[in-house]
C-alpha cells in the first residue's frame, strides 16, 4: 500500500439490534485493532445505535467511544429540529466539542420527510458550515430522496454511501455533473466492475470518498480494488484520503 493512506469515511461500531452474518466491532478499541491489521490509518465512524435505537442514545455512545482516540472522527445522526430531541441550541458547538465532523440522516427508518419544510433552516446551516451529510442507500434512502434533497439544498456537502448492489450509474452521474458538493462513497461503488475508473475518467477523482462499509463488508474488498484500479496514483490518493481530509478541513463548527 505504498504511497497510499486510507481514511475510511464509512464504518460503524456497536452491536446491531438484529445480528448479521458479520462480527461487529463492538467498540472503538476493537475497530482500531481491525484497522491496524487492514492498513487503515483513520476513520470517520458512527454508532449503529444511532440508526437502530435512537440518535439520542447512539450519538452519546459514539461520543464516548471516539473521545481521546485521535484516529477516529465521528458522525452523529440528526432528525428534524422541531422536536428538540437531537438538534437544539448549541448543537454545532457540541459537535465541535465531541469531534463530530459529519452527520447522517435516516428519514425512512426514523419516520420523517427530509425536505425544506422539515429541515430547511437546519440544512441551510449545515450547508453553510460545509458539514458533510451522509445518506445511505442501503438504509432506505431512495434516489428520489437524494435528487429532491440536492434540488432543495444545492450547496449541501452530501455523500451518498452504501449505494447498493445494482450499479446506479444512471442515477449517480447526473448528480455528479450538476452539484459540486455531491460525493459518492466507495464501499459498494467499487463492487461494480470498472465504475471507479469510469467516474475518474469522466468526472475526475475529487468527489469519490474511500469507505469500506465495515463491519458489514470486508475491508480488503475496497482496499484491493482501489490499489489496483486503472487510474493514476494521485487519483488513488485523492480517493483514499485526500478528498475526505479536504472536506473535514473546510467544516466550520
Amino acid at each position: 500500500m505504498e504511497g497510499i493512506r486510507f481514511f475510511d469515511s464509512n464504518v460503524f461500531i456497536g452491536t446491531p439490534m438484529i445480528a448479521g452474518t458479520y462480527a461487529p466491532a463492538e467498540s472503538a478499541g476493537k475497530l482500531l485493532e481491525t484497522m491496524d491489521k487492514a492498513g487503515i490509518e483513520k476513520a470517520m465512524v458512527w454508532h449503529v445505535a444511532q440508526h437502530d435505537s435512537s440518535p439520542v442514545y447512539g450519538n452519546n455512545l459514539l461520543s464516548e467511544e471516539v473521545n481521546g482516540r485521535e484516529r477516529l472522527l465521528g458522525t452523529w445522526t440528526a432528525i428534524p429540529p422541531q422536536t428538540g430531541e437531537v438538534v437544539k441550541e448549541g448543537f454545532f458547538g457540541e459537535m465541535k466539542r465531541n469531534r463530530i465532523y459529519g452527520l447522517r440522516m435516516f428519514p425512512a427508518s426514523h419516520s420523517y420527510l427530509l425536505n425544506r419544510v422539515s429541515c430547511g433552516k437546519f440544512l441551510d446551516e449545515v450547508s453553510e458550515r460545509k458539514i458533510p451529510l451522509f445518506l445511505s442507500i442501503s438504509r432506505r434512502i431512495t434516489w428520489q430522496d437524494v435528487y429532491d434533497i440536492m434540488a432543495q439544498f444545492p450547496y449541501l456537502t452530501c455523500v451518498v454511501c452504501d449505494i447498493g448492489s445494482w450499479s446506479p450509474m444512471r442515477n449517480l452521474l447526473p448528480l455528479l455533473d450538476r452539484y459540486p458538493g455531491f460525493y459518492v462513497e466507495t464501499s459498494m461503488l467499487s463492487l461494480h466492475e470498472g465504475n471507479i475508473e469510469f467516474i475518474v475518467k469522466r468526472n475526475g477523482s475529487d468527489r469519490i470518498l474511500f469507505g469500506t462499509g465495515f463491519p458489514e463488508k470486508y475491508i480488503e474488498s475496497n482496499t484491493l480494488e482501489l490499489l489496483h484500479a486503472e487510474i493514476p496514483l494521485p487519483d488513488k490518493q485523492n480517493i483514499a484520503s485526500l478528498n475526505l481530509e479536504r472536506i473535514i478541513s473546510e467544516v466550520k463548527l
Binding site: 463492487l191 484491493l224 480494488e225
Partner: peptide, 11 residues
C-alpha cells in the same frame, strides 16, 4: 460484467 474481480478477491 456486474461485479469486480478485485473486490471479490479482496473479500
Amino acid at each position: 460484467p456486474w461485479f469486480s474481480y478485485h473486490y471479490y478477491i479482496g473479500s
